[in-house]
């Protein structure tokens, strides 16, 4: 059995289940991101793993031990909250030591671990300040320190970076990742930001309506999306999804190129200049097709462009189930385009 094993986890509050029969495993030292839009059940899942929410059904095993009904403090986990949840009336030092005091760790060990984590997160100078006197990034570091000081093998993180500005978020992303590797932590990380999930995680579980749509390495989700939902969610700008009677054709904006000789004709609707590249929207088979071109391009609306893409980069999904279909060699889209 894996280090963390979740079986048939379900949570419902009477209405449609927030988490529906979810199962997955996490290996020791692995960084798993739970990714999904708001309301997909990712936070509820995390709260159940933390013991702060009781599952309606299913089991949670940490390190071969059934912890489904165990109190949060007894699960040998640490947690980092979105709001950091630093106790405002306690200093940085007292915040970090709160858990060790509650667990009656002896003072000598406490101080040793305190100086250790203060070194790790580089907060020694702010030890006696209150959280209110710290910047957002420093609060985030205190929250991390408070989590890792417990030496718990599992760390649960609930959108820990969403309250930081973009620059700080990039810095903290690599900081959390390197800390996790250095300490060999097993991390389950909830986020709605696909860039965080894709850049930090060993594996990503994409959730939708309380179920896992796909779980796998980031490149698997990007290259081989299992459903049209995954296809539409992963990647920015999102994949173009063009339905016909039975299938949905998916093609990423970054995979479409101009091809004067063999391309499919389509008419420009709009050009959006982004700096490094330009996002162009065209009309294709009655649907909007977005694609990226390097540099600054401006075409008048109605201008005809010839587009093409490699066959290997097209994805097909069933119109009825949304499931990925085996590569179709003959497709009327391509036929139409190649005529």
């Amino acid at each position: 059995m894996s280090f963390i094993s979740i079986q048939n986890l379900t949570k419902s509050w009477g209405e449609a289940p927030a988490v529906n029969d979810m199962s997955f495993d996490v290996a020791a030292g692995e960084f798993l991101a739970l990714l999904g839009p708001s309301g997909c059940g990712k936070s509820t899942t995390l709260m159940m793993l933390a013991g702060l929410e009781n599952p309606t059904d299913g089991q949670i095993h940490f390190n071969q031990k059934n912890v489904t009904d165990l109190a949060p403090g007894k699960r040998k986990i640490s947690m980092v909250f979105q709001s950091y949840a630093l106790f405002p009336h306690l200093s940085v030092k007292e915040n970090i030591l709160f858990g060790l005091k509650a667990r009656h760790v002896d003072p000598a060990e406490r101080n040793k671990r305190l100086s250790e984590v203060l070194e790790l997160v580089d907060l020694g100078a702010h030890m006696d300040k209150k959280p209110g006197q710290l910047s957002g990034g420093q609060c985030q570091r205190v929250a991390l320190a408070r989590a890792i000081v417990s030496h718990a093998p599992i760390c649960l993180m609930d959108e820990p970076l969403s309250n930081l500005d973009a620059k700080l978020r990039n810095e903290m992303r690599s900081e959390i990742r390197s800390l996790q590797k250095k300490l060999g932590l097993t991390v389950i990380y909830v986020t709605h930001d696909q860039i965080e999930a894709m850049s930090m995680a060993d594996r990503v579980a994409l959730l939708n309506k309380g179920c896992i749509e796909q779980i796998g390495r980031p490149e698997e989700l990007y290259d081989q999306p299992a459903t049209d939902f995954v296809a539409g969610f992963i990647g920015h700008p999102p994949m173009n999804l063009i339905p016909d009677e039975e299938t949905i054709l998916g093609i990423r904006p970054e995979h479409i190129r101009l091809d004067e000789s063999e391309g499919i004709s389509s008419k420009v609707v709009n050009c959006d200049y982004h700096g490094a590249n330009t996002l162009i929207s065209t009309k294709f088979c009655g649907h909007i097709l977005n694609f990226m071109i390097q540099g600054h391009r401006q075409y008048p609306a109605g201008h005809t462009l010839k587009l093409n893409w490699d066959r290997g980069q097209a994805h097909y999904f069933s119109r009825t189930t949304g499931q990925r279909m085996a590569d179709i060699t003959q497709n009327h889209f391509m036929n139409e385009g190649l005529n």
Binding site: G73, F87, P88, A102, S150
Partner: peptide, 24 residues
């Protein structure tokens, strides 16, 4: 989340009340 963090860090009902809820 303060209360949740208190429990999560190993506090029990008494210590969470005494050290987090009542001071607040």
């Amino acid at each position: 989340s303060y209360i949740e963090a208190g429990y999560d860090l190993g506090g029990n009902m008494v210590s969470v009340m005494r050290e987090i809820v009542i001071p607040h």
